[in-house]
């Protein structure tokens, strides 16, 4: 694969962003694409990619875990309760410990049982959502004290995002853990034969995803100033959007560090929904664009041939 071809492929995600920007800029020059507007979109993307980074580690191993949304929510609820009582010293440890504990439960269930993870996660989400409604007894949403709101304001809100993306970049490309995750995703049998302790690294991936979910929960709660319970599998459907960003990243994995393309994926989704907003349309029309874009992207990135089986 020649150098120039590889650079071209590495630039493709950025081209997608520029393309979306140009299209909406032409349609709605006045309202769309002001520098402050773009900065806000980047800020939102930075928060969403916290969850997407963690999710990427699990998706690379071919597992669709829908409980990540519920883990983020419940760890945010308990963290806020502790935070309102003790302050930062209460909030961060409590939410991280909760998220790790819940990820441990879902990981052991999904690794040890020979049942498809998707089905197991549906059962777990039902239970976690019932738990979240019980936790926020009688109030619509749990507000957070003002001292935490600072983490939701401009300069500070970016820091956890930047730190986590850098850490994940290093983990994915530089660390033994990242290499083994890709190895397990590529072929679990051969990975086991070469002495990789598959269950250990799968559990580690889940715990890292739990950690990302906890950080996402904290930052999102500070950004939106309160955390609400979820019902009717709402937390499961909220995971689909970061999953789309991860699919975007997997498509360009060979040419660009996946963590950058996860951020680009989130930014792309926000750009489209903001573009539609500026045109005065319902921002939920964005789902149509996201659905179609994902079909096109996955179609080009997978090279399966006539008799390959894709279930």
């Amino acid at each position: 694969m020649s150098k120039s071809k590889r650079v071209l492929h590495a630039l493709m995600p950025f081209l997608a962003l520029v393309l979306a920007y140009v299209i909406f800029k032409i349609i709605e020059p006045a309202r769309f694409g002001s520098p402050s507007g773009l900065f806000l979109l980047l800020q939102q993307a930075m928060i969403q990619s916290l969850l997407a980074c963690g999710l990427y580690f699990i998706l690379t191993m071919g597992v669709f875990d829908l409980t990540v949304g519920a883990v983020a929510m419940i760890s945010a609820i308990l963290g806020t309760m502790a935070g309102n009582a003790i302050g930062w010293a209460g909030m961060i440890p409590v939410s991280i410990v909760t998220a790790l504990a819940m990820s441990m439960i879902s990981s052991q269930l999904m690794i040890r049982l020979k049942a498809p993870p998707m089905i197991i996660s549906v059962g777990l989400v039902l239970i976690y959502e019932a738990l979240s409604t019980k936790l926020i007894q009688g109030k619509y949403s749990l507000p957070i004290d003002d001292e935490f709101r600072i983490l939701g304001q401009a300069p500070w809100v970016l820091i956890p995002g930047i730190v986590l993306i850098l850490v994940s970049m290093v983990l994915i490309s530089r660390s033994k853990f990242g290499l083994y995750i890709h190895a397990i995703g590529s072929n679990t049998e051969i990975a086991k034969n070469t002495g990789i302790n598959v269950t250990k690294y799968q559990t580690l991936a889940w715990l890292f995803c739990g950690l990302c979910a906890a950080i996402y929960g904290i930052v999102n709660t500070c950004y939106t100033s309160s955390v609400a319970y979820a019902q009717n599998m709402a937390s499961a459907t909220s995971v689909f959007k970061p999953m789309m960003a991860c699919m975007f990243a997997t498509a360009f994995r060979k040419y660009l560090n996946p963590m950058i393309s996860v951020l680009i994926g989130c930014f792309f989704l926000n750009l489209v929904s903001n573009g539609l907003l500026c045109m005065g349309l319902e921002s939920s029309l964005q789902n149509v664009v996201v659905g179609l874009a994902m079909i096109v992207i996955v179609r080009f990135s997978n090279k399966s041939r006539k008799y390959d089986v894709s279930k």
């Binding site: 979109l41 609400a228 903001n274």
Partner: peptide, 30 residues
Amino acid sequence: TNILAAYPEVDGFLLINCSFAPYVLAAMEN
């Protein structure tokens, strides 16, 4: 946040139900 950025001329919000109020306020404070 996006509405405030894209429509600077907006000077007020009509909420259908107040359960959104804390979230809208948070966006304004941000």
